[in-house]
Amino acid sequence: MDVSDLRKNAKLQIDGHPYVVVDFQFVKPGKGQGLYKCKIKNMITGSVLDRTWRSGEKLEAANVESRKMQYLFSTGEAFAFMDNQTYEQVELAADLIGDDARFLLDNLECDVLFFNDRPVGVSLPSHIVVEVIEAEPGVKADNATGMTKGATVSTGYNLQVPLFIKVGERIKIDTRTGDYIERVNN
């Protein structure tokens, strides 16, 4: 692709990594060369960097696609996902999942990112609903104070929850911050 094809959300391949353009500014002095000032995000690691390209430079478009897949199971070293339409299964190494592993509920529907037809990452729904399997006993009188206590949910993740949350209840968690959002009734 040519630099003049750069746009917000364009996907590029640099040094073997897929990047998405998250911010884009075009400047051009009069009869001079155009500068395409971009902020690009590594689609695997999420790291963001500044890059400037100049008129006439060539870029490599990244062959990336995102597919809806269901989480099946983990072997510890890898995590298996299945495409519900084709029943195709893929495995992602644990280091590509990283901290997201703590939110992988059985059968959770995720977006699996493919780069050159290879699965390279997962993006989770922005929140999940999980069951509390362990919680310190609460003190009823402290409900209004905003105090919290430790709890563990069915995926094994530990977090702080309000004192009124009890074992067996279901709660909603923000997967971007890992924070408790609310109690979910029934």
Binding site: V27, K28, P29, K31, G32, Q33, L35, R54
Partner: peptide
């Protein structure tokens, strides 16, 4: 000259 003054300008 085009490249030099373009970069200098920026």
């Amino acid at each position: 000259w085009t490249a030099f003054l373009s970069e200098w300008s920026d």
